[in-house]
Amino acid sequence: MPSSATPSELEQPNDAEKPSDSEQPGRGSPAVSVPGRRGGSVRAVPAGASSLSLLASELATLFRRRRTMAMLVALAAIPVLIAVAVRLSSAVPPGRGPAFLDRISQNGLFVAVTAMLVSVPLFLPLTIGVVAGDTIAGEASLGTLRYLLVAPAGRVRLLLVKYAGALAFCLAAPITVALAGAAIGASLFPIGPVTLLSGDVVQPPEAALRLLLIAAYLAVSLAGLSAIGLFLSTMTVVPVGAMAATVVVSVASQIADQLPQLEWLHPWLFTHFWFGFADVLRQPVLWDSFASNALLQAGYIAVFGALAYARFVTRDILS
């Protein structure tokens, strides 16, 4: 995953454009000991450790930020809203409202399932759009990008760490919805054995595991969108632009997925398997859609990761 060590040969912007000089002392020399009068205090920390340090800093910066916390709170409010609404109304007639809504009053765990289902089309992509669109463009607009790069963070290393940060948020967002849903469900409704879609009955601990599995499915689903957001973020110094563009792309993809005229395109859309998580609610778990989804997302990560790399490594940092 992105935290792995980066080969430093990759991190040389504009290398390809430059005519190769006859004398390039930097080329062959060992990367570790930097010569200096300063008694060796300027020395490379092992690559893995230093990248972990940067990743930790990235995660701390991301999750300590008020905006990130506000988004997670907003996501947590979705199950709360659903649970309170169901609690206050008389029995929900089956077949109306989002799937699973009618089962909430018998089993509180279904609050989490319903809330995750409801947040897939817009709320999750919205928050991912904000985080992924902000990755590079946000640093550029603050001006901190130039200081990260002269630190030097290394462009490839920074891009990987930024993407890892976005992935962490992709995981945190659905887990927040699941945990908030389970908590509010448990406090307002009875918790009991859950009847799966296959008809089997599982006990609450096993059911909670299934909830986390759905969250993991959603995290994987959002990985492709994050890569798109990362790429868009390298294109501009206006973070709002990259954020909006990312959200628009996710909505457009879902619309295209609805149009029968574009049937040939459907399996290639990164949103195509977004609702396929019902399969983890079977006994035994059907991994087919999980696997197809993961493969598709990996493809998007590869393509947009490469585009982001190509763009960012050669870009002039003028902000």
């Binding site: 930097v34 205090s41 300027v42 020395r43 490379a44 920390v45 690559a47 450790a49 230093s50 990248s51 340090s53 940067l54 930790a56 800093s57 200081y147 990260l148 630190a151 030097p152 963070a153 290394g154 290393r157 920074l158």
Partner: peptide, 9 residues
């Protein structure tokens, strides 16, 4: 400082 590969933690 964490961004630099060379700042000893």
């Amino acid at each position: 400082d964490a961004a630099s590969r060379h700042g000893p933690p």
